[in-house]
Design a protein around this nucleic acid. Structure first.
Lengths: 204, 204, 204, 204
DNA sequence: GATGAATGAGCGTTCATTCAT
DNA sequence: AATGAATGAACGCTCATTCAT
């Protein structure tokens, strides 16, 4: 039974995650999840203290999964800029392919995050740190001129986040191909980084 | 009475909009709005067919307001790049100062947008067109090399959206100043545009 | 409709009160009340903020009713002892005839009283004050020797309460007639008062 | 293991009894008890058929404990009146010191007693019999004039019960000392007994 | 134009209890 | 002897909405 025990927990997580993306967290109820899973609503409480805890478990899992993806990238022999590009690609890929996770990780109304445990928040921040470290490296190597890597890392994240969230919400102009949209975002991000050194392009 | 009639409609819109930001649309109820407004819940239905319609009215108003802001900018004697910068600043300013509008305009769960009337969607798109036009102008003038302005306009929007939404959700690293965060976003956007011409920055 | 409006409120109060006596407050649910009344559970909330408020309304009504009964007694020309006897009879009669009220007034688990508004508590205490005043009068007249009327008034109440609650709970030995049980209680209470003076007061 | 077996049964009884006083029987759940005890909810069912049976066991235990206390009193050389006083003191002491037992023994909603086995009820009645016997003795000795001891015994119990229950419910006027409240109750009870004979019985 | 009365559906959650092991 | 898994029923309560006035 040790297997079936965790099976239900897993199924609940998977099912509720998959329901998230087309209904939103506020619109999936314990009953609906239970129905979809094929168990009683009560049973969910055997594995999660309450709806909040279920949500938190999903969020945590999402951040872990993203972290796993990003840290699995092979950086061997690549310079910081290229590394950042891969991290960005990884982030976008994750966000688009795991829209359900993405929704609760980055789109959830702040209200729901109020009670999210602090130590889990810290874990979530490791993802952005991966980018920051590369920016710092690039700066040290003279590849960028970015004294404050924290700000720029946040800006990079913001850009990626904007892209992913518009894509997932179906709010990108329908005549714009996803592929070129993503590539242009990446180009923009990287251009932003590169523009911090050398010949400032003189406009005006 | 024709005035007081519209007064109530207005008050309902204002009140529900102001309640949006710290509760989320799913968590404001008709009765709560009515209580805050000081009328009966039934009265809301005199002006809005249902909760959906109220939401749609708010969204429409938001896009109109944004459009008014952006079109009020004085472009006199400015080149496209500078104009785009002002449009971006205008967008960010609007998003941060009208977080309630912004939430329903860009953060609402797609589910809620399903029934949003098509012709209103078109109106919403006028905002992004403002940016696109300037990109096209810049391209024509040889200031950028952006054959497909639509894509880039969407990317610009995505970047701005990412910034605004992280800011409003309080998800920007707390040690990062809002001001410098915003300025860096702008710099990144503009660098992305400028990088399409002239001397490709040589890295590595 | 002004009539039917209050009618439902009244019906809810009456129905829930009558259900109280054979089920206990914890075992009557909003649904059960609604079913018995013939309205929806939701409707109860139109008249009472929550289950607590409904309970409090019942309690208040009970104390008011008791107070009305006790103050309606004709004391004309009667000495304190006789007055006290009448008050005691009134109390017992009320308790036995309104077992539902009595339950929530005096038998409810303290837990439920925690949130009972203080000013209503004060109102409840008026009932015991009626007895206390007569004890004080009797003391002043030399009929008793009871310097601290407060204590004795509480003891009188306790005695009556013990009698009523055992009666209502069906815990008086079944071979003991209610009538003689009550009379004996009264005799005991009065004897307790009279015994405070040296010479046995000869009554009647 | 025969011992540890009984240990769990004992622990369950003790724990649930101790939880009774500040929550009420309706508000302690099998799981809460199990949690407090440190066993599974299921385990409780090994020792008690259901929640009712657990309650009944507690009640029975309470009556037994009271009986033990009352029969342990040393009556040697004391007259009936004094004996009754001691019995009353014992009863009040027990009720105040074992408020949890007392609650289920005397304050439980009759509904819960419906299924209480008849033979256990008989056992419960032994306690009141102790008082009755002394009243009969006193009557026989001419100390009181109480032909029907049953009635008076019930009245004595009622008085004591009224006192204890008001005390435990915190419903005695807060400015009244517990000690003097109890003493006055006792005085009243004894006065009631003594008043049955013409000349005030001089005791001690 | 405005409202009070009313409701069915649904919410998150807890309950006593059973069953297989 | 003991338990983890599971559940149907019920809880207090809030929701968007309708209807008669």
């Amino acid at each position: 039974m040790a297997e079936s025990q965790n099976n239900l927990r897993r199924t609940i997580l998977d099912q509720s995650r998959s329901m998230l993306v087309d209904r939103g967290f506020d619109n999936i109820s314990m009953r609906k999840i239970a129905n979809a899973v094929g168990c009683s609503a009560t049973s969910i409480y055997l594995y999660f203290k309450n709806k909040d805890a279920l949500l938190h478990a999903l969020i945590e899992e999402g951040f872990q999964k993203l972290y796993d993806k990003l840290t699995a990238i092979d950086f061997n022999g690549l310079n910081p800029l290229k590394r950042i590009e891969l991290l960005c690609r990884g982030f976008i890929k994750f966000g688009v392919e795991n829209a359900e996770y993405y929704e609760i990780m980055f789109q959830l109304h702040p209200k729901h995050m109020e009670r999210y445990p602090v130590e889990k928040f810290r874990k979530a921040r490791r993802n952005i740190d991966l980018i920051m470290v590369e920016i710092q490296d690039g700066h040290r190597m003279g590849m960028f001129n970015i004294p404050d890597a924290k700000v720029v890392a946040n800006v990079v994240l913001a850009t990626l986040h904007g892209g992913v969230s518009l894509l997932n919400a179906g709010r990108v102009d329908s005549r714009v191909g996803h592929e070129s949209f993503i590539e242009t975002i990446l180009a923009s991000v990287l251009a932003g980084l590169k523009s911090t050194v050398h010949q400032p392009v003189r406009v005006e």
